[in-house]
């Protein structure tokens, strides 16, 4: 990789800030800088972008077309206009999975975020044995999902499971968990949170490490207590990382698939059927890739709306 654009003059080095200046020379200069920045920016992005464009963006764009067709994965997709979309509007199973996904995300996102953040903060301290506890927290993420589902099913067993044995101390009629339409989703959320907390903890931990220690010292001198330091030093410094974690967590939650596949397979009935699993079923069980793409686009749209809100909020806060 060659050295990129060596700026020679000091005025050039002022980078993007110079467009505020008025006058012809400044405009020309600003243009030059903007051109150079564009070139440099694209040069940095290029190695990743080339791969990304062909391997991911291309097929994703193809999906936007396939969503308006009938396609069994063989031969050419047949354009059907809005047929898939009309079908979608009347598809009760789609709507059930839509609301299930929504339910899952609304509970899972804050729960995971709070626990992971608390854990990251705790394990970023000089706590004795933190290496051990960090490793322990990451274990659920690397434990075979089949094993995890099996042990949790046992824990949730309505009659002999320890969870209900404990609950029976307080209530006479504990939930039927995976065998009930009302409690299967909470059970899935608990296991998903258990599994993912360690993963997001690692990301947040990396973010915490970029906070300069002297910020805390300054806050200390100003007489801020622990809670104030958390809100006024930790959280603002973590904003870029938090944005990243919240967006990936949101997208990850809306795309949840493997856990419900192993734990409940969508049941009982459609009570834990989520959008991604519906896409999977429509695509591979029914060989209906056109309609699967349509459902994917809804999933995509929901994720994008949430992401754009966060993007906008984050940019506003950052300015």
């Amino acid at each position: 990789m060659g050295e990129v654009a060596e700026p020679k003059t000091s005025s050039n080095a002022r980078n993007g800030n110079s467009h505020r200046k008025s006058g012809d020379g400044a405009v020309v200069e600003a243009k030059a800088i903007s051109r150079r920045n564009l070139r440099n920016g694209l040069l940095f992005i290029a190695p990743n972008f080339l791969g990304f464009m062909f391997l991911i963006l291309g097929p994703v764009i193809a999906l936007f077309y396939i969503a308006f067709t009938r396609w069994s994965a063989f031969g050419d997709p047949k354009f059907t206009g809005t047929h898939n979309w009309v079908r979608l509007a009347h598809d009760k199973i789609f709507w059930a999975s839509f609301w299930n996904t929504f339910y899952y995300s609304v509970v899972h996102i804050p729960l995971t975020l709070i626990i992971a953040f608390a854990l990251a903060v705790l394990l970023n301290s000089k706590l004795k044995g933190r290496t051990f506890f960090r490793t322990v927290a990451f274990f659920p993420y690397i434990t075979s999902i089949v094993a995890a589902a099996q042990v949790w099913s046992m824990l949730f067993d309505p009659k002999s499971g320890p969870i209900n044995m404990f609950l029976r101390l307080f209530i006479s009629n504990p939930p039927n968990w995976l065998g009930s339409t009302a409690w299967a989703m909470p059970a899935v959320i608990i296991v998903a949170t258990w599994r993912e907390v360690g993963y997001y903890m690692i990301l947040l931990l990396a973010g915490l490490q970029t906070i300069p220690g002297e910020l805390y010292e300054a806050a200390q001198l100003d007489g801020a207590n622990g809670w104030q330091r958390f809100w006024h030093v930790t959280v603002p410094s973590m904003r870029p990382t938090l944005f990243f974690v919240i967006v990936t967590l949101t997208i990850g939650s809306f795309k949840i698939l493997d856990l419900t596949l192993v734990m409940t397979d969508g049941g009982p009935g459609t009570s834990t059927l989520v959008l991604a699993q519906y896409v999977y079923r429509v695509a591979f069980d029914r060989s209906d890739f056109g309609y699967a793409s349509t459902v994917s686009l809804v999933l995509f749209a929901v994720c994008m709306v949430v992401t754009l809100i966060q993007f906008w909020y984050n940019n506003r806060k950052a300015d």
Partner: peptide, 12 residues
């Protein structure tokens, strides 16, 4: 692109 489920575009 992260928001698109892979199983939908893996065949293309």
């Amino acid at each position: 692109t992260m928001a698109v489920p892979w199983q939908a575009y893996m065949i293309p």
